[in-house]
């Protein structure tokens, strides 16, 4: 228990430092890349504005102040749990993000389910039939999955399942059926790494001494594979998962936009395009927080999956 508290305590500290560094870097990058939200705010694309109007707004929103001062103001706001308002829609940033977050998370979970459905059988096939056709099948699946860009796969899936077969809906999030195409697109994009990793680990584990011992005890092949070997091989996958959460949340964006999934994708892309600083900063903050928290969960999972880490106690 004490160990848990220690882990959580140190992670919280890590979280604060990381989010500060991360948010400062993004703030700096946004400010030094060309462009500002003023022209979007003034709607110059269709309404008459002059250079003088632009300068007035620049002053009003303090964009002419030193970067450190602007960043400082944002941090002070965050410390008071105030992420500010969107410069474009004038809504509180926190509301905008929290409204979209559940959809992004649910699609991520859908992707993970598909990932699991693809990666575990394929990884197991590759390891158990090492060097034979199921291994090649597994290898080719991984290779194909890794080389297909997800926006293309998404469009192809829509073409086959929605236009040709008329089985699944193209866009939106109304029913469970709406989950399938985006989840598959996401899962297929992530699966290759896990297929290969699981295969390698499983092959190594199957040759280890405790598996030999289990065989000697006369345990059935299936039992050895699923209750001993597979469990031991999952640890590196969990590690990998912890590391790739950031990538997952980034990859979801493309898929969300493709399938009009009402998550944070459209929100953040528009915010970046129009340089809506408070929204971008808020997004970074929330995503940073999620990555750290999920890594914490991964650490806890280690202990559950690997009894060896569990202080010598036998089972749970």
């Amino acid at each position: 228990m004490k160990q848990f508290l220690l882990i959580i305590g140190s992670r919280m500290l890590q979280l604060i430092i990381m989010v500060l560094v991360l948010s400062f870097i993004t703030f700096l990058l946004m400010k030094i890349t060309p462009g500002d939200p003023i022209r979007t705010m003034l709607n110059v694309e269709d309404m008459a504005a002059t250079k003088a109007d632009e300068e007035r707004l620049m002053k009003e929103y303090k964009f002419d102040r030193p970067i450190l001062e602007q960043y400082g103001e944002w941090v002070i706001g965050v410390l008071q749990l105030d992420l500010g308002e969107s410069l474009i829609s004038k809504r509180p940033v926190l509301d905008m993000i929290l409204e979209k977050l559940p959809a992004t998370l649910s699609l991520s979970i859908g992707g993970l389910v598909v990932l699991f459905i693809i990666a575990v059988p394929m990884g197991v096939l590759g390891a158990v039939y090492e060097g034979r056709w199921p291994d090649y099948l597994s290898r080719w699946t991984a290779l194909t999955g890794a080389s297909i860009p997800s926006f293309w796969l998404g469009i192809m899936l829509i073409y086959v399942f929605s236009v040709q077969l008329n089985l699944l809906p193209v866009m939106g999030k109304a029913t469970l059926a709406h989950f399938i195409l985006p989840s598959v697109t996401l899962g297929v994009a992530m699966a290759p790494l896990y297929i290969r990793l699981l295969r390698e680990r499983l092959i190594a584990t199957l040759q280890s001494s405790y598996i030999e011992a289990a065989k000697a005890r006369g345990l059935g092949k299936k039992r050895i594979l699923f209750s001993h070997a597979l469990r031991g091989s999952l640890i590196p996958l969990v590690t990998m998962f912890g590391l790739s959460i950031g990538g997952l949340l980034g990859g979801v964006t493309v898929i969300e936009i493709l399938f009009s999934w009402p998550g944070m994708g459209e929100l953040i892309v528009n915010a970046v395009m129009s340089r809506d600083y408070p929204v971008i900063q808020g997004y970074i903050l929330i995503i940073g927080f999620l990555v750290v928290v999920s890594n914490l969960v991964v650490d806890i999972m280690y202990v559950i999956i690997n009894p060896q880490l569990y202080n010598g106690k036998e089972s749970m």
Binding site: F151, G154, I155, I158, Y159, S162, V163, V170, M171, I257, L258, F259, S260, E266, V269
Partner: peptide
């Protein structure tokens, strides 16, 4: 939907 090809498919 901001993807033109997806709009055409829909």
């Amino acid at each position: 939907n901001s993807d033109g090809n997806v709009r055409a498919l829909a």
